[in-house]
Design a protein around this nucleic acid. Structure first.
Lengths: 335, 335
DNA sequence: CTGTTAGCGCGTTCAC
DNA sequence: GTGAACGCGCTAACAG
């Protein structure tokens, strides 16, 4: 490891001069600067971020924890965050929680100990109180992403789940669907809870009676109940899945039972699949502006980091609009 | 920020005792330990990884750069790496290069400056010489993943692309296919080059004449040429795509032209799609043991990190076997 | 079993 | 315009 001392020695200047040349933090004479630059080149000197960060108590990095960067929606959020931080010369430290509370806590801990300047967090459904406690105790600046908290006094960015679900169901009703099943999944996850609420919002008490809401976190159990529902008399004419994993469960059951879409059964999902175009039929999907969400999270975070001591800004909750991508899986159902 | 000094003061012990309690690095008396632990609890002290790393010149972290953690194969590799490093109490710093040379270099730089103990790298196709130069100059321990170099004197782990492609094509020939198109893509990417080689290996000169190999890095251009091929007389009976993106291109063209699979045209791809089961028809896919590759990369890396000074170990190249998952898209073609 | 001391590599006041 | 000196928070020798 070549350090500043060696550069300074070679250039025949002092340590601080080298530092100022490297960081452009004060003017140095052209000749001196040249010599320093040459020495840096010759030695192959590289700043040690660690020492720098220790001294400045700032790492110019932010942490991002998602349940799985491989899931399409999160992939895009990650891209959005990457993009936004890159513009500010900030490094992104990315970690997966695998939708597991313990791993989530470990990831957050590791990032905080690495002294990230800020943290963006898409919490997992089973997120533990330990995490809350940990975050409460002198954590860095924090922004919640996607999985929002109703009560919390933090910056957060999510989407209008409740509203768009109501919209979706409204339109399905117009299409003539009377018996719709919502595969709601684990409603401890705020996102899924909000979507369920939107479903109920859109239906009158009478309508709701003919419909069904499948809650639970066990995929096999959900599949079982869905199978029973489809086999029974007065079977539903439409299934709505609350997330990609739930769509997988639903579609598996549908394929296994040999129902045709959309002729026998219409289908729509939230979040959906990469390469949806290649599915036959293509699937009607509620899409999040995931990239934008990532960007927005950074926009929320950076001012907090800059603000340093002053506690002036109030916590902000931003909800971006989702759009419904109508595709073949809900087409011409009446015909 | 509460530091060790405050803990030491409160517990009435010396700095080093606190350090040893925290790290369990030597025995301390039960009573003393209690007092230190209490003080830590009371103050909410947390280790500062930065200072620790600076002192130990070891960060207990490794960097992983992939082109896109969202692509299924890479997602799994990431999981494999995460899993393996977690077992050793090592933190993973993950970065995407977006298949872009400049971003790749930036990512590597940022990780090296953060003093990762080791680096795992799935290089992008357009990977620049700047990166080589940078890595050559005093880099940390390095392992190449997936995208291997024939000449290089580095540890690397990949798959048997050439062999498995020959196997795949051999079987397709047995099925009666005489005109097969390989959508080979950007053969500057070693993986894709090896796959093309395997394709040629499996065919006699005469057979090869009836087949086609589509090379190039422009998706639109490839699509164009594939369209022409399918429209022409003596159209191919089978398409093989060399990677997921190439499969997307191919399948789009096929869907657009309304060819049916496998009746009109058989199809197989490398790497493939998440949730392949949900596709109709499901797609014959050459699958990498991606998770295992990630694990293996870590296995290769850790000894290098431990070895410290001694340059004893020779560079190792490990190729894991891929398996062919025969599905509906190549079924019963002759019937 | 515990404490003292000397840096890790850098940024930043101060003086000059 | 430049340099000297101090300390960020911690660990590793060495003493006791």
């Amino acid at each position: 490891m070549v350090t500043m001392v060696q550069v300074a020695r070679m250039a025949g200047v002092s340590l601080s001069t080298v530092s100022h040349v490297v960081n452009g933090t004060r003017h140095v004479g052209a000749g001196t600067k040249r010599r320093v630059l040459d020495a840096i080149d010759a030695t192959g000197y590289r700043q040690d971020t660690l020492a720098r960060a220790l001294r400045r108590s700032r790492t110019d990095s932010v942490g991002l924890v998602v349940s799985d960067a491989g899931e399409p929606a999160f992939t895009e959020m990650v891209h959005g965050v990457e993009h936004a931080v890159a513009e500010h010369g900030i490094t992104l430290l990315l970690a997966n929680s695998a939708e597991d509370a313990e791993r989530e806590l470990r990831a957050v801990r590791s990032l905080v100990e690495r002294r990230v300047d800020g943290l963006i967090l898409a919490r997992c459904g089973s997120s533990s109180d330990d995490l809350d406690a940990y975050l409460a105790a002198g954590s860095p600046r924090l922004v919640l992403l996607d999985r929002l908290r109703a009560d919390a006094d933090v910056d957060q960015v999510g989407v209008d789940n409740r509203e768009v679900m109501a919209l979706l169901v409204g339109r399905l009703k117009e299409d003539g669907h009377e018996r719709i099943v919502l595969v709601a999944g684990d409603t401890r996850v705020p996102t899924l809870l909000e979507r369920r609420q939107g479903f109920v919002d859109a239906l009158s008490a009478g309508e709701l009676k003919r419909c069904a809401v499948l809650e639970g976190r066990d995929a096999r159990g959900l599949a079982q109940r869905l199978r029973a529902l489809l086999a029974a008399e007065g079977a539903p004419t439409c299934i709505v899945a609350g997330s990609t994993p739930l769509a997988v469960t639903s579609l598996s059951v549908m394929k296994e039972m040999g129902v045709r879409t959309p002729e026998d059964l219409a289908f729509a999902t939230f979040d959906g699949f990469a390469h949806n175009d290649l599915f036959s039929p293509s699937i009607t999907t509620v899409v999040q502006p995931a990239f934008e969400m990532g960007r927005t999270a950074v926009d929320l975070l950076l001012p907090r980091i800059e603000e340093a001591g002053e506690e002036c800004l109030a916590a902000r909750t931003i909800r971006l609009h989702q759009s419904i991508d109508w595709r073949e899986s809900t087409q011409d159902w009446r015909a």
